[in-house]
Simulated assay, not measured.
Amino acid sequence: MRSLYLLAEGQSEFVVIDSVLQPHLEQAGFHVRKSILVTKPTVGGPALRGGVSSWARIEGEIRRVLLDPTVDIATTMVDYYGLPNDTPGMSQRPLAADPFSQVTAVEQAIEEVIGDPRFIAHLTLHELETWVLAAAGPLGDLVGNRRLTG
């Protein structure tokens, strides 16, 4: 089995990884590990998790994961919207281009800065929570809630 590490932006992404992606990836032969970005370490208590506070914090967590030689692939599940301005590629992204090209440019810049072939940047163009609203009908079918199916 190959080891895949998913670094989630927040609780919503973590739930999607846990309930949707992980079972599928495990069937495909991956051992999945995951965590939520630490947004603020606290003295004497648990660290606060979820959300993107700074590129330095994201970079530090990615590099910490890649210190583990058993990780074959590491990736992120982070929303493009709201990325800190100092994130690699943000100031150079092609603003006149379509949003997908902008996301791709930032992902490539992040991968270049990290510089580890095991790392594949993944930014979600639209906030993950938007996916739920956009697919309320199928979500209602999935969870058995007729009020969502319309």
Rank of each mutant, 00 (worst) to 15 (best):
A121F: 05
R33M: 08
V71N: 07
T149H: 13
R147D: 15
I120G: 08
D116V: 00
E127F: 09
L142R: 13
E61S: 01
K34A: 05
R118G: 05
L133T: 11
D86H: 09
T42N: 11
T75W: 07
N85R: 10
H24L: 14
E111L: 03
R49K: 14
I36S: 00
A136S: 09
D98H: 07
V132E: 05
E127N: 07
R147K: 13
P94Q: 01
L66D: 05
R2S: 14
G44K: 04
P94T: 01
G89E: 03
K34N: 02
G89K: 05
V132M: 08
L37C: 02
I62H: 06
V32A: 00
H126D: 11
E107W: 00
M90S: 07
Q27Y: 13
V71F: 06
D79G: 02
L4P: 00
V71H: 06
I73V: 12
N145P: 02
M1K: 10
R2K: 15
G44F: 04
A135K: 15
L4S: 00
Q11Y: 04
E9G: 02
T76S: 03
P41T: 15
V113N: 00
L133E: 08
D68Y: 06
S3K: 12
L21A: 09
D18G: 11
T42V: 10
K34T: 08
K40S: 11
A74Y: 04
P138C: 06
H122G: 00
P94M: 01
V32R: 02
V43I: 09
L6R: 05
E26T: 13
L133V: 11
T130G: 04
A28F: 11
V43D: 11
R64F: 04
D86E: 15
L6F: 08
G29N: 02
G144W: 03
S53W: 06
G29S: 03
R57A: 14
Y80K: 05
V43G: 09
R93Y: 06
E107Y: 00
V143W: 12
T104D: 13
P99M: 02
T42L: 12
T124Y: 03
Q92S: 15
A134P: 02
G45H: 09
V15H: 10
V38Q: 12
R64C: 05
D68L: 04
Q22T: 09
S35L: 02
T130E: 13
S101H: 14
G29Q: 01
D98L: 10
N85V: 12
Q108G: 01
P94R: 00
A74H: 01
G10C: 03
S101Q: 15
E61P: 00
E9M: 04
G150S: 14
L6T: 02
V15W: 06
A134D: 11
L125S: 11
A96G: 15
A47H: 12
T39G: 07
S91E: 15
P117L: 09
I58H: 02
G50D: 01
H31A: 09
V15A: 15
I17Q: 03
G51S: 01
S3C: 12
V71G: 06
N85C: 07
G144Q: 12
E112G: 04
Y81A: 15
H122W: 08
G144D: 11
D68E: 09
I73T: 09
M90E: 04
V16P: 02
A96W: 08
L148K: 00
R147C: 13
I120E: 08
S91W: 11
P41E: 15
T124S: 11
I58V: 15
V65Y: 07
E111C: 07
E59W: 10
A109Y: 09
